[in-house]
Structures are given as structure tokens and as C-alpha cells.
Design a protein around this nucleic acid. Structure first.
Lengths: 394, 394
DNA sequence: TTCTTTTAGTTGCGATATGCAACCAACCAT
DNA sequence: ATGGTTGGTTGCATATCGCAACTAAAAGAA
């Protein structure tokens, strides 16, 4: 059998199976509008690779005919390490290819005593055995960081919590010092929340939504006993995570913000310290936050808003206020529908989403854009054993 | 010479030449990362078609070598009709393939006496000869309308100014009744402003910006002597015009809006009527508008803001205020840079941009997305003489 | 049972798209 | 002139995909 398949279509088929487990070859051919023989060839390639398997033999239709073979991704073919690093703590999760968390750990961390990259290396070296003793190799590592991140170059451009305003080429430094040769992907923490929603919500994959990450943390490393409300937004628009022109998209400050304050709202910093302790403060924040979320929901015509981080405890109040303001702020007779939900994994949402970022990259179609801009590797190129040769000729 | 070329790469080459006039074959091959022989074949195809020509013979480099042949789109190969239809007036423009306006006309229109589609047909039939007597065939027609538009299906979903809240399948009705068989594209008026910036700003093609269309018009058809400020926003994010989940993106209302008003700000409707007449009202509007624009600039990390429509007269004040609020609303030490500019064509910006929408579609790479969703035709499929056969075998 | 019809999946082959290498064309510097 | 260099073209090898014919396995009817 001397047949050939292209990377683009291999990735298209892999993506389709990932997004809708249980499809048959013929169904994939119909969805992608390519010939079933082509799908057949690609599927047998992916089966030989081991990442795809026949899940079950389906039932024939009412008019007879051969029974279809339902395909799926092998959940145990490999796993992904997801990581959130904050100023005070870090979280590691291990996720299989089905999006199931099989390992999870959170621990304090003091970034005043160790550099970011050192911390990363230590964490990976320490927890990789825990993930791999399941028999699954670690296919990639995703990292969520507070601050502005260029995920294409793998660079942390600036971070207020880390008090670092020079570029750190995180991915390059990390890969140089890492024992293993696996892809390392970085993005902003709130954006990682978005990646999680994209990667693990197979059925109803949303194209326009925001992830509101409200944390209660030190504003900078140096602020010892000064925990305040810190709010970041991750945006998914047209199905793509939006980073903006210089990777600072999602940075939030209220329209009513007053100068000389550290917090992002129109309240004083003294009030802000009482967040989650004084209901009156919470109410002010909820109202002001809801006005801005409503503006974004209407202006960007979003389908849903996901709330993540410790603010989750205020989710009900936030939803009520957002629904009020979206109505007030809408001129047309028919209200636009949208959903509000709470991120399922709570404290682990960012680390979990960071792992999802790798999976999303794995099933991303290699771009055919105008210029071969510095587009990061994606699709099956991300798989470790994919040397240039094995791939094409088989 | 029995060679073959694919639609995707034909469109990629056409797009590259369009975006950067004067490239040579070798340069295109380098940019697109395809073999120069492939480019050669595609270029000779496009030359036979007539849409591409050799503009000039370049100079050899300092180390010698054959002189490159600079390619360009033939500006007179065809033209595009751009149309803006409002409640009180319409504007037609004729644009050649270089983006030069060679025809322009504005006239009052009373949509109480004629239906939208009827008006469209009448306008096209009346002005097509004016465009075609230049010898250029009309390749396509772009239309900008106030309201929510689904450009993929060509449907006007709802329009407050037109007082129409049922779907109108504009493109289908128009094409059925139109004498000629040319593509008709529709989009929201503010979005058309964006299309214009994309299509005719070849050198520095922006990927993240908004077009603020501020008009001074009747709020609905029925409002006889009641002209107020009407503001719409078109958004381009990640290089794509953003329509949102249900095509209502860009609809603006202030966060401080008070109930029971028709205008979009926190002022009373009585005040709003004095827009552009009472400087105190203008100042209130400018300040409130600038706060929201600044929020978007920071939150979406935009590179520029374009002001279009009659608000242009306030552009300087708006810029000053926006610069003030983006600074106030920014926590990081280094300010993010962005530009503010006034749309060049003033009153004709929407009609002009509507024409640009066709050109953008013409140079859009056929998508290789997951499913063959109802993706509108694009690339060279838009050209009239492109029967299925002529294209591939030559 | 046996035959026909229907659908899923496989295989060989031909059609087609692209890269490769060798070529020609036209320029520079000696 | 001569050699080195770059742009563009051509013939051919190779890579990719669709088509049609095939096998496999089911339902239903005779």
C-alpha cells in the first residue's frame, strides 16, 4: 500500500474525530467534503500511529448495509501537563487526551526566592514521573502566567504581579534547560481559561465568549500583606483566542476608575482590601463589573460569559446584575441570548486550560495564510515521533 | 504546456500581488514558501486571464543577475459598485481594482415610498451604465446597510432605522430580480467602514482596529423632524471583521445609559437633539464616547481607531479625550501605542468600503476549516468567467 | 434459504498539483 | 569575453486525491 496523505488533511481528520468522538469514516468524509477513500487512508495512518482506534461497531441503518466503525482518540495514548504559576502558589495537573484530570496538585511557591524559569524546571522535573507512571508519555506542557504573553514566540512580555517588565523568552529558556524534548506552550492565565473551554467542551464549542478570571491575590510579589481583587479577561472571538496587537488584550480597568489607586475599580484601595469580607464592597464591585461585562456582551455579541477563580462565590449576584444591565443597554425589541456559567474546575481552571491549549494546538489546521509568517508548529507536527520522514512516506 | 494549478494557490498569489503591488515571481515564491516554478505557472494563468500584468522591469541587484519583472493587478480589468442605503439618502461609488473612486453620487431617498430591494434594483439599473461606459465590467456589488446583517447568507436580520425586525433575504431577492449575474455582498454600514480600511490600505494592513461611524440622522424612518446622533462601531479583530454570535456586534450603548431615552448616551433626548449645535452637548458626548473607546482600545489592545461620518468634525476633541482616558485606564508603565485617524472619504466612506468588501472577498483564501460549513464563495470563484472547467485545465 | 438492495470500507489507478533540477536570460564585476 | 549571480521557464519526478470497482456485512423480500 503505497499511498500518501498530506499534513493538512491528516490534521483535519484528527481534529474532526477529536471534536466529535464516534464518527465513522464515511461521516468524516461527508463533513470534510473529501473522498471516503482519502479518509480511509488517513485513518489507517492514524491507527498505525496509535492515536486513533475503533471504539465500537455501530448499527446498520434501517435500509440495511454494512455496520459503520465508530472512531475515537485513544485517551491513554499520551497525556499533557498543565501548569499555573502565580506569585504565591503553583498548580500542576495531568490530563489525558479525553480531557480527564488524573493528577492534580497545588502548593505554595515564593517567587522572591527563585526565578520563574527555575521554578518551572523544578516543577516539571518533580512531577513528570507522577504523570508518566500511568504509562502515558507527556506529549506537551502548557503554562498559564499572569501578564502579557506572546504565545507565538513563547515570550512573557511583561507582568505586573511578577514585577517584571522586560521580555523573558520563557519557552526558549525552558526548552534549553529541560531534559525532555516536548513542546512547551505559554499563554496568559485568563486566556488559558478560554483554552479550557475550547478544548474540553466538545459538544457545543463556543465561538464568542469571555472568561472572567477574578482572583484575590497579592498585586505584586512585594506586597506582603496586601491581597486585593485582581481581574483579568480572556476573550475568544470568531473562534480564536484574542491577544490583540501587542498581547495586552484582556487587561481590565473600569471606565469609572479613579487615579492613584491600585485596584481596577472606582473604589478606594482601602475598600478593595475588604473584598470578600465586606458585602457592601462586594456589591460595589459586582455592580461595576457587571456593567462592563454587559457592555462587552452587547458590543461583541457574545454567546456566553464564564466566571473563574475565587470570584465564583459571587457568580449568582454577577449574573443577576449582568442580565439587568444587558437589558437596559439594549435598544432592539428582541433580547440577544447569552449564557453565564461558572468554570467547572474552580482553582484548577487555569492549569487545566493550559493543558487544553496544547490539545487545541494539536488539532489546529496548519494555516494557509498569505505569508508564512512565524507561525508556530501545529497539527501533527506537534507529535514527538513525527520526524519529517516518517510522516509522509509510509 | 499542460500544467495545473489549484484554486487555493491561485488565490494566494493573487492576494499577495494585490496586497503588495510590484512583487516579482521569486519574491512571491519566497513569501508564500512555494516553488518559483509554481508561481510562474500561476502567474501566467492570471496573465492569460488578464487580471495581472507586468508593471515594470526592475533593476538587477548589486551582484548582477537577471532583472526582475514587477507584477501588479490591472486596475482597469474591472470595477466594483459600492452602495450605502440609508433612510434618507443613498450613495453610489464606482471603484477600480486599485481602489480609485472614479464615480460617485449621492441623492435623497425616501424609504417610506419604496421598499429596500426595489430601491436597490432601481439604483443598480440606473447607475450601472455610468460605471461600465468606462469599459470596465462591474465584477461585483457591495452594499452597506444600517442594522444587523448576516453577510454569509446575505440577510438583513433587523434594522432599527428601517423599522424592520423581520429577516429580509436581501441577496437572494436582489439577485433574482437583477438583470446581471454578479455577486452581491451586504454588510452592516460600520463594518463596511472596516472593509474599506482593509481593502485600500495596502501598505500597513491593520489587524486590530475599530471604525466608529457616528451619524446624525433620523433614528427611524418615521421620525420626521427628529435627527439625533446615531453611533455604530465596526470591529476588526485578528484581521477579521467581527460580527459576533448573531450579527449584532458593534451595537453601542453607553454604560451610563439611562432608561427611556432614544439616544445612546447618558444625556436626555432633548439634549441629544442639540448635537452639533450646542458645544456643551458635544462635549458631553465626546467625553462619554471617549471613555468607551478607551475601554475598547485597552481591553482589545487595538492598534487604531478610525472615525467616520459627520462626527468627524469632532475628531480632534475625541482624540484628545481618548488619549487622556487610555492613559488613566492603564496600569502598566509603558503605554500601548495606537493611532487615531479620520476616515478619508468622509460621507462616502461606507459606500467606498462596501466596494472594498468585494475586493477583500476576491483575495480571501478559500477556508480549509473543519467542516465545509456554509462558507460563501471567495477567491477567484468570485470572478464571473470562472466556469468550473476553464479554471483548472488550460 | 437465497436473492436483491443498501451502506461502509478498501484498493488500484488515473488525474492533478507541486517541487526539483536543469535550463535559458540578463545583469554585474573583473 | 568570462565567470558569478539572480530571475524566470520547462520537463519530469513525486505527492496527493478522487473515481470506480471492488469486498464486507447488514436488511428485507421472494
Amino acid at each position: 500500500m503505497e499511498r500518501y496523505v498530506s499534513k493538512v488533511n491528516i490534521t483535519r481528520v484528527l481534529r474532526t474525530i477529536y471534536l466529535t468522538q464516534g464518527l465513522s469514516r464515511v461521516e468524516i468524509a461527508r463533513i470534510l467534503d473529501i473522498n471516503k477513500s482519502t479518509v480511509s487512508k488517513i485513518v489507517s495512518f492514524l491507527e498505525e500511529l496509535g492515536i486513533v482506534e475503533t471504539a465500537a461497531v455501530g448499527e446498520a441503518g434501517p435500509t440495511g448495509g454494512r455496520r459503520p466503525l465508530h472512531l475515537r482518540i485513544r485517551p491513554d495514548w499520551g497525556c499533557v501537563m498543565g501548569l499555573e504559576i502565580q506569585t504565591e502558589a503553583f498548580t500542576v495537573v495531568g490530563v489525558n487526551l479525553q480531557g480527564e484530570v488524573f493528577f492534580s496538585h497545588t502548593e505554595p511557591l515564593d517567587l522572591r526566592t527563585i526565578s520563574l524559569v527555575d521554578a518551572f524546571i523544578a516543577i516539571v522535573d518533580r512531577f513528570r514521573p507522577s504523570l508518566e507512571n500511568t504509562g502515558m508519555p507527556v506529549l506537551g506542557i502548557g503554562v498559564g502566567l499572569p501578564g502579557f504573553v506572546d504565545p507565538l514566540r513563547g515570550v512573557l512580555c511583561a507582568s505586573m504581579p511578577f514585577e517584571h517588565y522586560e521580555e523573558i523568552n520563557f519557552v526558549r529558556e525552558a526548552r534549553e534547560r529541560l531534559g525532555i524534548r516536548v513542546p512547551v506552550l505559554v499563554d496568559n492565565d485568563a486566556n488559558c481559561g478560554c483554552w479550557g473551554e475550547l478544548a474540553f467542551r466538545h459538544s457545543s464549542r463556543p465561538s464568542n465568549f469571555i472568561f472572567v478570571l477574578g482572583e484575590h491575590r497579592k498585586h505584586t510579589i512585594a506586597m506582603d500583606n496586601h491581597r486585593i481583587m485582581a481581574l483579568g479577561v480572556g476573550l475568544v472571538l470568531n473562534g480564536q483566542v484574542h491577544h490583540g496587537e501587542t498581547f495586552s488584550a484582556g487587561e481590565f480597568r473600569s471606565i469609572l476608575y479613579k487615579r492613584q489607586q491600585v485596584n481596577q475599580f472606582s473604589i478606594t484601595d482601602e475598600q478593595a482590601k475588604l473584598f470578600l469580607q465586606d458585602p457592601r464592597v462586594d456589591e460595589l464591585i459586582v455592580d461595576e463589573l457587571a456593567r462592563h461585562i454587559s457592555f462587552l456582551v452587547n458590543m461583541l455579541n457574545l454567546r456566553k460569559v464564564v466566571i473563574g477563580g475565587p470570584v465564583e462565590v459571587l457568580a449568582e449576584q454577577i449574573e443577576e446584575a449582568v442580565r439587568k444591565y444587558t437589558r437596559i443597554n439594549w435598544a432592539y425589541p428582541r433580547q440577544v441570548e447569552f449564557e453565564m456559567e461558572v468554570s467547572r474546575l474552580g482553582e484548577r481552571a487555569v492549569a487545566y486550560g493550559a493543558a487544553g491549549m496544547y490539545l487545541e494546538r494539536l488539532i489546529r489546521i496548519p494555516s494557509v495564510e498569505t505569508d508564512r509568517e512565524a507561525t508556530a508548529p501545529c497539527g501533527i507536527d506537534l507529535l514527538p515521533q513525527m520526524g519529517q520522514d516518517q510522516l509522509v512516506r509510509r
